[in-house]
Every structure is written in structure tokens, then in C-alpha cells.
Design a protein around this nucleic acid. Structure first.
Lengths: 198, 198
DNA sequence: AGCTGAAACGGAACGCTGCTCCATTTACTA
DNA sequence: TAGTAAATGGAGCAGCGTTCCGTTTCAGCT
């Protein structure tokens, strides 16, 4: 209901070859521009780099969120698929959760402005928010539940709240030595553990 | 060095009465607009409501951050002054820290988009960020240190990181029942306590 | 009070961005 | 090869931030 198709665009089933080709060209250009200028980069700039008109981008990706989603889809997918694997391989459920969060955080902090966009005050990125949730929330919930059932973590924390909190902590300028979201997230996990019960 | 004058504007020492009057008019209008449209509201709208030209606003408050700072200055001040008071009155240093953070969070979440602005990716709000830090970081540091010295909290956490983390957790749409920053901040404080040592 | 210089003012103007519309081009198919 | 519908590109409109400058208003002086 919320997200019918990953990229809100007939992925590659288009009748015409030029359309399919342009879609890829735009994705490549967007990925390049995002690295240097963040996910807020002007559409015009992406269009110029891709050598297409703006309408082409808007036709393939009606909203900016659709474009961003398409660009990072593979990595979101990889993150989602890592969940079950970690659950099976890690030393403990809590360890699996920890490692998965590490992956998630790495993803967020290496994409300029992505975390910001996810919680953006405006609704420009609502679809991106929704896609992240659709794809990753179940994974996070599974890992969280397992850790709770194993008694490693106190119950009562909602997966949504945890994921959004982690996302929020990753917001802001990168490379500030005074602020490393990982340290705070570690603290959060510490607080989640049973041991320090009130 | 970073902030010479609270509002980066000669507060009320202007030679001319109309200038002083207009400054107040703008502040009132801005406060009203911020409530409904957030701190990102168009300057033009504030100017219209105040019944002045845009240049008047820019002359009094060169950057948007200066305007926001001036609007919320009293409340920032109140928050800063509450620190020492709580340190003296609370049951314990940790309790003082907790109560102060409560005040800080209340301030952030009731001002539409203020937390967002504080960590904004762009530099539009750099001065606001700086002012918050100048005024509140010492207060937070004091409370944090006291709690550490009392042995209630593990050492090693930097005040800047804690404040920014709290600010980040407050980012986002208000009134989402699924997300209450206070719960996560409580978890963070839980993780900060000595008891749950690894 | 009247004069005058300077401070303060307002809004037009410029540049940048998001998004749309439509005349033109291009690729499939018969 | 010709017809047709999909696809294209860029001009155009609207909103916003910021600056510039001709005009107005104040405060001190005579």
C-alpha cells in the first residue's frame, strides 16, 4: 500500500530502449552528484551531468525520494539481507543486533545527507522514509525480538523508535571529531541491556 | 570569539526610536510565524506580518540564525540558568542532569523545527548552533562532571557529544505517537550509568 | 520651529531552484 | 518505409533568499 514498487517506476520493463538507457544514465549521474553535493543536489545539475532534460528525470522518478531510493536500492537491500545472516552467524542475538546496527550506521554516515533526508521536516522525502521502513523495519524487529527473547535486552522498546533514533543520531556534518554517532549508539545499546535495571 | 553579542545586533542601543521599535515588531512577528510555520518560514512572510520591508529584517538580523537566536534568547537563557539551580536542589547530581535534560528537550520539541535547524546540514544556522553551544555546553558539562564525580555515571562521555546526541534525537515531526525522544534519551542515560558495566 | 545629514526604510530586482507543459524528436511495429 | 505513441528537452512559471538603491524619517543643531 505504502510502496508498491521499489523505485515507483517500471524498473526496466519499458518498451523503448532509449527510455531504459536514460534511466540508467540518470541513476549513474545522480549517484555521482549525490557523493559530492548530497541528496539535496539540484535536479538541474543531475540532468546536466546526465546530458538529459529535467523532464526526463521527473518522468522516471516523480519525486526526489524515488530517485534517491533507486540510487541506494542495492545497498538498502544488502542491509536488509544481512539481517537474517547475522542472526544465524553471530555469537548471540545481541551481537547480531549490534553488528546489524553497525552496518546500518555505516550506510547512513557514508551517504552525504541521507540521514538528514530520512527525517527531514518537509515531506519531500516521505517516500524514502517509507521505503526504508518497509524494507528494514522487519529486519530490525526480528533482531530486536530475538535479543529480548534471549534475555539480553529489556523488553518494551519498539523497533520503529530504535531505528528512528539511530537514524537521528547519524544526522549532521560528517567528519566532526567531536561527534561520533557510534559512541552514542553504543551507549543506547548499553542502556537497552538488562543488567542495568532500575 | 565565536559569539560577541547574543543576537549579533546592537540589542536596543540604537540611536533612533523607529529602529528600536521595528526591531521589537519584527521579533514579535517572527515569534508568531515560527509557531505556525517553523523556523524555516519565508522571510517575506515575517516581513509582511510585521508590516515592514524585508531589508529591515536583514538589517537587524543579518542571518536567519540571528533572528531565531533573538526570538528564543530568553528561553535559552532560562535553560542555562536552571542548571546551577538544579545542581543545588536535586536529590543527586544524576537527578539534576536528568531534570536539566528534560528542560532542554521540552524546549526543543515545543519549537517547531528548532532541533532540525540546530543540526541542519547547510550552514544557514551555524550561528544558532554556536550560540546554543556557548550558552548551554558549559552548563551541561558542569552537571555531567558532577554526576561522574559522584560515581553515578561512567566517565568518558564528552558534553558536546551528549548535547548534540540529545538534540539529534529531538529532530523530526512532532506528535508521532510511535516516536518519543524522551524514551530514547532515558535509555541513553541508563547506558551512561555505572551499574551496567561491561 | 526649521534645517540638514545620516540612519533607516521598503520593495523592486536578480539569481537559483522545483516543477510543469508542450512542440518536437525518436524508436518500435506493421 | 511509414505511422504512431512514447519519450524527450528546455522554456516558462512560481517561490524564496539576498542585495541594491531611491525615498522617507528621525535627531541634533541653530
Amino acid at each position: 500500500m505504502t510502496a508498491e514498487d521499489p523505485a515507483a517506476d517500471p524498473p526496466s520493463r519499458s518498451k523503448r530502449a532509449d527510455a531504459r538507457r536514460n534511466r540508467e544514465t540518470v541513476l549513474t549521474a545522480a549517484a555521482e552528484v549525490f557523493v559530492t553535493s548530497g541528496v539535496d543536489a539540484p535536479i538541474r545539475r543531475i540532468a546536466d551531468r546526465a546530458g538529459v532534460g529535467m523532464a526526463t528525470i521527473y518522468r522516471h522518478f516523480p519525486t526526489r525520494a524515488d530517485l534517491v531510493t533507486a540510487v541506494y536500492q542495492h545497498q538498502i537491500e544488502a542491509c536488509a539481507e544481512a539481517g537474517p545472516r547475522l542472526a544465524a552467524d553471530a555469537d548471540s542475538p545481541l551481537d547480531a543486533l549490534r553488528q546489524w546496527i553497525d552496518l546500518f550506521v555505516d550506510f547512513l554516515v557514508t551517504k552525504h545527507g541521507l540521514a538528514d533526508a530520512l527525517q527531514s521536516d518537509s515531506d519531500r522525502f516521505a517516500a524514502l522514509h517509507a521505503y526504508f521502513l518497509d524494507r528494514l523495519l522487519p529486519v530490525c524487529a526480528q533482531l530486536l525480538d530475538a535479543a529480548v527473547e534471549a534475555g539480553e535486552i529489556r523488553p518494551g522498546t519498539q523497533p520503529y523508535e530504535l531505528m528512528r533514533g539511530i537514524g537521528n543520531l547519524c544526522i549532521g556534518r560528517d567528519n566532526d571529531p567531536r561527534y561520533d554517532p557510534r559512541r552514542l549508539i553504543a551507549l543506547l545499546l548499553q542502556g537497552l541491556q538488562r543488567s542495568g535495571q532500575a
